[in-house]
Design a protein around this nucleic acid. Structure first.
Lengths: 209, 209
DNA sequence: GGATTATTATGACTAGGTCATAAATACATT
DNA sequence: AATGTATTTATGACCTAGTCATAATAATCC
């Protein structure tokens, strides 16, 4: 292998790394940082089948839109299909490839947890409820593509200092129970400062440093 | 108010709704669905200060990139800063506005949970480990902007049928413990079919229907 | 030196816009 | 019915970040 060929190989790897790191780079940006011409970069991209900038960010946006809406964006993970306040509810989450461990294709636990927690909180009418404790069990691994059905039941309300809501959530794939969780939710009201020292960034209420 | 003015108002609202629902619509798409010309749509967009398609998806991609990387995309939530396999580790997650309940600005539990779970799994060297049980406690509400520091410790390994890893995770904001969780992880090996009936979409191994 | 490969240049074309200007249309008012 | 105004549409020049095809140049190997 000649010198030029080796250089090419190295540059192509660099191109891959660069766009992976920052998919918002134009061909001109790439050309500048790699000290080659724009056509060279285009050739590299073509052979590495890296799509053009606009396509890259379009894909990025498309990919993440659904996930973010159902995960980071909204208040609720999954779609609530039944809800009786202070009693129970049902919500559904379609799992997909973006939620799995690569190796095993098994859906990561925290997606299942998030579905359960969201539903548990949705059932409580209290203005703001937070999970205080949870006791959870994953019975069966879930694979991408499964439709998770969460059923939630408010079992008890106790007042021990503050109001505590005892909520049970079971999640099924078809008829198989894959998850079971008992959540103890706490109403976030005036009692906050008693049991809960609030820790925050800008919004620090009760300092601890 | 005349007829035309009213029509305009209605159309502008429709434009807003349409791009909100599907930010990937071109002006031509919008013009067609609204039965007006492209320039009209452009005028509407200008007055509603809706950016052009490319800018919209660029913003979408930029906004969600960070979140998705740390949430849905990668295997790990948070950034691992220390890791001793089969022993312990430390990971860090910077919380932000996208992770909170709107009303209270409190970080949603499942982000904290995900940080803990990710670290617990990372510590286990086993090819694929899954959470079997977890016992968790949220001590203190966390506000956006806090830097969460998760410390994890492998406490025990027991073989009860399959290998079980007993992992403790504590999460701090500064010196305050905000979360504590005991995870029992199960190695996902040959023992899978014994204790675990596998439920999945396309990859259904042990059917239940 | 000549063949081969890699790099660069060039030109024509594209989508999905921007901005500015002009023309056409519809409506309300006098 | 005529006119003024708001609204809508049309037009043309320009932009970015590309596409594709073709050609020319440069570097390396045999």
């Amino acid at each position: 292998m000649g010198k030029r060929q080796a250089q090419k190989e190295i540059r192509r790897k660099a191109v891959l790394d660069l766009v992976r790191e920052d998919p918002f780079m134009t061909d001109e940006d790439l050309a500048e940082t790699l000290n080659v011409s724009v056509p060279t970069v285009r050739l590299d991209r073509a052979e590495l089948s890296i799509p053009e900038l606009r396509e890259r960010i379009r894909l990025l946006a498309a990919q993440t839109r659904g996930k973010v809406r159902s995960l980071a964006g909204g208040e609720i993970v999954g779609e609530i299909v039944e809800l009786e306040l202070n009693s129970g509810g049902v919500s559904i989450l379609e799992t997909d490839d973006g939620m799995v461990f690569e190796k095993t294709q098994v859906v990561r636990g925290h997606f299942i947890y998030a579905l359960a927690e969201s539903l548990a909180i949705a059932v409580i009418t209290e203005d703001a409820a937070l999970v205080g404790f949870a006791n959870i069990k994953y019975a069966v691994p879930v694979f991408a593509g499964s439709r998770l059905i969460a059923r939630c039941e408010l079992r008890d309300i106790k007042v021990i200092g503050e109001k505590r809501f005892f909520v049970w959530v079971k999640i099924y794939v078809k008829k198989t129970e894959v998850f079971r969780g008992k959540f103890i939710l706490v109403a976030l009201g005036d009692g906050l400062a008693e049991d809960f020292a609030v820790v925050g960034g800008g919004a620090e209420l009760l300092g601890s440093g």
